[in-house]
């Protein structure tokens, strides 16, 4: 077990907790624990009650979605210095993705349920925590949007379907034997018959 004073040092040195006030620091140290995950183990799973969040100290975590019959889809990987898990602060407090250790992962975990209760009781503290978490969420959202853009994707446009130039189309439309029109007429007449 890591001693509380060591946990305190980790917290102090981490940018995420920079400038943290004494009350919150004490609280976090009080609800922190050192954890280790072997490759393949899960930090949390989709749908589970979000009881913890993690500060990754070493290793890589895949945030992913499981799908039957195919390998899981990795949405993003998070690594040393990143925060894993923010579902604990959003109702209904259920994890929205799986978090799987891709390598040996060492992390600090924080008891979210305890923290949440304190936040509700002390809105100033609650704001302080939100102020640190919202940027993480905003960053993730922005990154996810960029990822969606498929920026490096093929820029080749699908070959345009051959379309008649407007002037040609006009000229053509005078004739009555255009295949498309003929089909239309057929369909029309069929409709009439049916009707």
């Amino acid at each position: 077990m890591v001693k509380p004073e060591n946990l305190g040092r980790i917290i102090d040195e981490h940018p995420f907790f920079q400038g943290i006030d004494a009350t919150l620091r004490e609280l976090l140290v009080g609800c922190a624990a050192n954890e280790r995950f072997d490759a393949g183990q899960f930090l949390f799973r989709q749908g589970q009650s979000a009881k913890k969040f993690f500060l990754i100290r070493a290793g890589t975590v895949a945030v992913e979605i499981d799908q039957p019959g195919r390998p899981p889809i990795i949405i993003e990987t998070i690594a040393e210095g990143d925060i894993a898990g923010w579902a604990w602060m959003v109702e209904p407090y259920q994890s929205t993705f799986d978090a799987r250790a891709m390598t040996l992962v060492r992390a600090l975990s924080f008891d979210a349920q305890c923290l949440r209760r304190k936040m509700e009781a002390d809105p100033a503290l609650g704001f302080e925590v939100m102020r640190r978490f919202v940027p993480v969420m905003a960053h993730r959202l922005a990154a996810a949007r960029l990822q969606m853009l498929d920026l490096y994707g093929p820029t080749k446009k699908p070959k345009p379907e051959k379309t008649a130039k407007p002037e040609k189309a006009e000229a053509k439309s005078k004739g009555r034997n255009r295949a498309a029109d003929a089909r239309l007429e057929k369909a029309e007449s069929k409709k009439k018959k049916d009707g």
Partner: peptide, 10 residues
């Protein structure tokens, strides 16, 4: 693939 997933800005 066992490496990083996400945008390069990460």
């Amino acid at each position: 693939w066992g490496g990083n997933v996400g945008v390069v800005t990460n």
